[in-house]
Design a protein around this nucleic acid. Structure first.
Lengths: 345, 345
DNA sequence: CTGAAAGCGCTTACAG
DNA sequence: CTGAAAGCGCTTACAG
C-alpha cells in the first residue's frame, strides 16, 4: 500500500478557490470568514482528510505545544502512574508529551535531555536519575526552557542564574508517621530498610525515621539501616541483612513499596509472617500495596495525582516565566493496612 | 528569572560572518566546509548555547523524526515495560516518542490519535483499547501515516485500502503449553480464569486451553470459564466463582499475570494455598511474577523486548512503506515456578 | 569552499 | 469578508 501524500492548507485553498489565509482563518475559528466560505472549506478539509500541522504552526507562531517528560524508571509502577498522570493533564491542556527515560543513568539522562530539547518543548518535567548533578542538568538544558524537577533533589547547587521548579513529597513527615505508628504498636527495634542514602528522598525519609526514634528515646543502631536498590528484587535479596546480629529488629520502615513488598517476600521465604511476627511499612501506595498478602500499611502519595500536579505546575511556569520558584512539597498520610502488628511477645 | 531567547542559525551565522547555509552544512557535518570555518562556527554555537530546531528542519526536509505511541494502560506493568522498550529503541534510532494513553477507552483513543497526528509522526504504534474498531481507527489515522498494532487485533475489517502492521504474541500456543503442563501434573478439572472474551488475546488464549483439554479427552465445563477485567483487583474478587459448583477445578490457567496474582490473593483469603492445594498459571511474566509467594508459573513474553521489536518494525515500515504487511507473531514459552503442583490427593 | 535564493506548512498584520 | 506578502528556523540545489 502506497502512503498518500499529506494534504496541506494549499491543497484546500486551491480546491476551494480561496487563499491560504482564509483557510487558516477557518481553522482558527475566526468570525471574519463568511459562513458559506467556512462551510465550503470545512467540507473540503473533510473530503481530502486534511490534518493540521502543529509543528509548522508552532514554528510560525514561535510557540511550542509539547512538554518533555523524562522518567527515571518506567517499570516502577510509582513512576508509571506519575507519567500517566502527567500525560493525562497535558493532553487535557492541548499539549503533547515527549517521552524520554533515563533508566536511572545520569549519562543517559543527559543524552535524552539533549535530544528532547531539539524539539523545543515549552517545558521539561524531570524525574531525575538517582544521582543527578544540578550543574550538568543546567548545562544541557540552558536558560531558555523552564524545568520542573519531581521527587528527588538535584545534587549540588545550580548556577545562580538557573532557576527551576520543584515538586516533592514530604518524605520526612511520611517516614516519621510510619515510624510513630510502629512505636505506638510497641516496637522498639525498628529498621530503616532499602533505598540508597545518596538519593535525597531516601535521606529525607531516614531523617523522619530518626526523628521519631529519637523522640521516643531510642538511638537507632547502625545495623538497623540496610541499603538496597529501590526495587523489589534487590530488597528481597537483602532481607537476611536484617537478621545477622541479635537483637534483630521486629519491624521495618521501608524506603518505598517496591522495597516493602520485596522484604515481605523475603520474610515469607525465611518462614516469617509479615503482619503477624514482623511489621512492615511502605511508602508510595502503589496499586499492589492494597492487594498484597498481607495488604501493606504504607504512606499514600497518589502518584497519578502528583503527575497531574506536575503538569499543572509546568504549564503555570510556561504561562508566567517570571513567577518566583517556590518548591511545592506535598503532604502525605499513613494508610493503615494489614502488614503492621505488635512485636511478638 | 527571565527566559532567554532561543538562539538560531541566523545568530550563529551573523556572529561568525558567514551565511546560514554554511552553518547548516557545519551542523550536518558536511566535508565541504573549510576546517577553520567549521571550528569558528562550532565554537560560536557552544558559546551561544545553540540548540538545533528539529521541527523546523523536519518541515523543510519533509520528514518526521517522531513516532507516536498510544498505550491502553500505563499502570499495567506489562504495558509500562512495553512502552519503556519502545522508547529505548526509538531513542537509539534518533526518534522521539510522542506519548498518549487511552485508559482502555476507545473514545479517548480516537481523541488521542487525532491529537498526535497533528504532530505528523513518522508512524504510530498502538496498543489498542480492549474493543477498538478497525474502521474507526482507520478513519482517524487516514492513509498517510503507517500504523503498527500491538498485542490485540482491531475489531472488524479495515477498509481494503487501509493496511497496517501487527505484532502479537502466540497466545494460543502459550495457553496450550500452560494447560498441558497442568495436565501433565495430573489435573483434569482445569479452569480458564479471567479476561474478557471480547478481547482477541483472551479468545486466543482460551482456544489454546481448549485445544489442550480436548486433546487430553476432556471437554471443559462451561462453569470452568470465569471472566473478569484483566486486573488483579477484579480477579481477586471473582475467585469465589470457581467454587460455586462441585466438582470444583483443582487448577486454573489464567488470562494474564495480573489476574493470576489476584487469584492467588483470593485463594489465600479463602484459606487455600496456591502451589500446594491449587495450581495457578499466568501469562506475561511481569516482574512481580518471579517474586510473588509462591513464584508464578507463567508464560514469558518479555514485554520490554516486545517494545523494542515494535519500534524496530515501525521504523522498518517508515523506511519501506511499500513492503508487504505480514503479521508478526512472537513465540512464547512456559516458565515453571512454584505456583503449580499436582492436584490434592 | 561559500552565499543568494527558494521553499517546507503555517500565521499575521496590512490592504482593499 | 478576502488576498498578497512576509516570515518562523531550517535545507538544498545552484552559482560562482
Amino acid at each position: 500500500m502506497a502512503l498518500r501524500r499529506k494534504v496541506t492548507l494549499n491543497d484546500i485553498a486551491g480546491a476551494c478557490g480561496v487563499s491560504r489565509a482564509t483557510v487558516s482563518l477557518v481553522l482558527r475559528g475566526s468570525p471574519l470568514v463568511h459562513a458559506d466560505t467556512r462551510q465550503r472549506v470545512e467540507d473540503e478539509m473533510r473530503r481530502q482528510g486534511y490534518v493540521y500541522n502543529r509543528a509548522a504552526a508552532g514554528l510560525r507562531r514561535r510557540e511550542s505545544s509539547s512538554i518533555a517528560l523524562v522518567i527515571n524508571d518506567l517499570s516502577n509502577p510509582f513512576f508509571a502512574e506519575f507519567a500517566a498522570g502527567v500525560d493525562e493533564a497535558l493532553a487535557a491542556a492541548g499539549y503533547v508529551t515527549l517521552l524520554g527515560s533515563s533508566g536511572e543513568s545520569a549519562e543517559r539522562q543527559q543524552a535524552v535531555l539533549g535530544t528532547l530539547l531539539e524539539y523545543h518543548p515549552a517545558a521539561i518535567i524531570l524525574s531525575p536519575a538517582e544521582v543527578s548533578e544540578a550543574s550538568r542538568v543546567a548545562r544541557v538544558i540552558g536558560r531558555s526552557t523552564p524545568l520542573l524537577v519531581f521527587n528527588r533533589r538535584l545534587v549540588g547547587d545550580a548556577p545562580t542564574d538557573f532557576a527551576y521548579d520543584f515538586l516533592g513529597l514530604d518524605n520526612r513527615a511520611g517516614a516519621r508517621q510510619a515510624t510513630e505508628h510502629l512505636l505506638a504498636l510497641g516496637h522498639r527495634r525498628i529498621a530503616f530498610f532499602g533505598g540508597h542514602l545518596d538519593s535525597s528522598s531516601c535521606r529525607e525519609r531516614r531523617l523522619g525515621y530518626q526523628d521519631a526514634m529519637r523522640e521516643a528515646g531510642i538511638e537507632p543502631e547502625p545495623q538497623w539501616t540496610v541499603e538496597s536498590a529501590p526495587t523489589r528484587l534487590e530488597a528481597a535479596a537483602q532481607t537476611g541483612a536484617l537478621f545477622v546480629r541479635d537483637p534483630a529488629p521486629t519491624a521495618a520502615v521501608c524506603y518505598n513499596d517496591a522495597v516493602a513488598l520485596g522484604l515481605m517476600q523475603g520474610l515469607i521465604r525465611r518462614g516469617r509472617h509479615p503482619g503477624h511476627d514482623f511489621a512492615v511499612t511502605g511508602f508510595d501506595d502503589i496499586p499492589e500495596a492494597a492487594v498484597s498478602a498481607p495488604p501493606l500499611t504504607t504512606v499514600g502519595v497518589e502518584p497519578r495525582a502528583r503527575g497531574r500536579q506536575a503538569a499543572t505546575l509546568a504549564l503555570q511556569r510556561v504561562r508566567d516565566p517570571g513567577a518566583a520558584h517556590a518548591p511545592v512539597i506535598v503532604p502525605v498520610r499513613l494508610i493503615e493496612r494489614g502488614s503492621t502488628c505488635p512485636p511478638p511477645a
